[in-house]
Design a protein around this nucleic acid. Sequence first.
DNA 1: TTGACAGGTGACCGGTTGGTCACTATAATA
DNA 2: TATTATAGTGACCAACCGGTCACCTGTCAA
Lengths: 199, 199
Amino acid sequence: MDKSTKDRILDEALILFAENGYRGSNLRDLAARLGLSKSALYKHYDSKEAIWNALLDRMEAYYAQRFGSAEHLPETPDSCEALVQLTLGMTGFTISDPQVILTRKLLLTEQFHDDRVRALATKHFLEGTAGIFTHLFADMMDRGVLRRDDPAMLAFAYTAPITALVHLSDREPDRKAEIMERIGAFAARFAAEHAAQKG
Amino acid sequence: MDKSTKDRILDEALILFAENGYRGSNLRDLAARLGLSKSALYKHYDSKEAIWNALLDRMEAYYAQRFGSAEHLPETPDSCEALVQLTLGMTGFTISDPQVILTRKLLLTEQFHDDRVRALATKHFLEGTAGIFTHLFADMMDRGVLRRDDPAMLAFAYTAPITALVHLSDREPDRKAEIMERIGAFAARFAAEHAAQKG
DNA sequence: TTGACAGGTGACCGGTTGGTCACTATAATA
DNA sequence: TATTATAGTGACCAACCGGTCACCTGTCAA
């Protein structure tokens, strides 16, 4: 089934808002991207702000399903090497997928201009990712892969530097290869340091 | 000596641009904040963009002197407790000083719209802070306070989570007390983990 | 005294932007 | 077949914004 115009508007609005900001985007450009006239947009949304709100609705729904339930947790790694591989896989996706990149840009650039974005930014950059790894680390401790420790603190210490490098990749997309290497080195070092049996 | 109008314009421009973004700010509001008419601004700067560029010039000069020379390095902590205290002092300032907060907001919200901001953002959030602690950690290893290790990797692992909490404080300034506690806990844990003599 | 100049004012201009409206085409339905 | 709802068009409008211009005022040097 083809995507509805209503959805396509949000797809293009994400691109536009992420690259120029909400205030820096205008409905004429948005309509042109869709091959529509500006007034056609008003058949689907009442205003520019309504498009913005619908886009945030969609993003909130996405985060609710991604971070909300335990179902979307990745399988617990059964070794330190598996943890590094999982991390590299997740990060590789996150710095390559266009939609994810645009979403991150939107969260960063609009976080101080809109309260819903503010909340989503904290969820995405802090609680969400760290929350997932809190679960994984707790499991890995139970299974004797990681030395017993505070899983939440460990997850925070693990994900925050990786997130910083993801942001660097958003700023300088040409350095992706180098950044992936740094993430791999950081993850490997971290895993070695907190492995159940040292060495 | 009183501040020149030219400087006061940049002061207010920082506030305006940081809170509404460059495109979301207009010269009428800026003039009103200064108690001037809009046309008076043109006696000091040729255009809105010229104000923006002058503001970036000033920011670049600030970062050059802060991160550029070894003179501005804090004194090397002579114990793990001193490291924690230094960290809390620096962070306490950075999340409280209005100008620093505004600068950070500007860097975050405009990093994808302007190449100079992009470069400054990487310098501020990644290389700069980590660079300072790379020096400190190297010194502390030489003096036997910290276990010998890769100082750059260690500095990155230390500063990135703190920076993430600083960003959280920018988004949710009401949580400053809680955030300072988290930073203290993280710093203390990190120091204990990398101290020369364990325990 | 005069003239140049720096700093400031308000009116005005053209381009852009969000939003409206009358109108059209098409497809489903009574 | 007549009707109605949906989706789309282009012209238009008012508000806003960056920028210009003629003009004013105080200071200070020639």
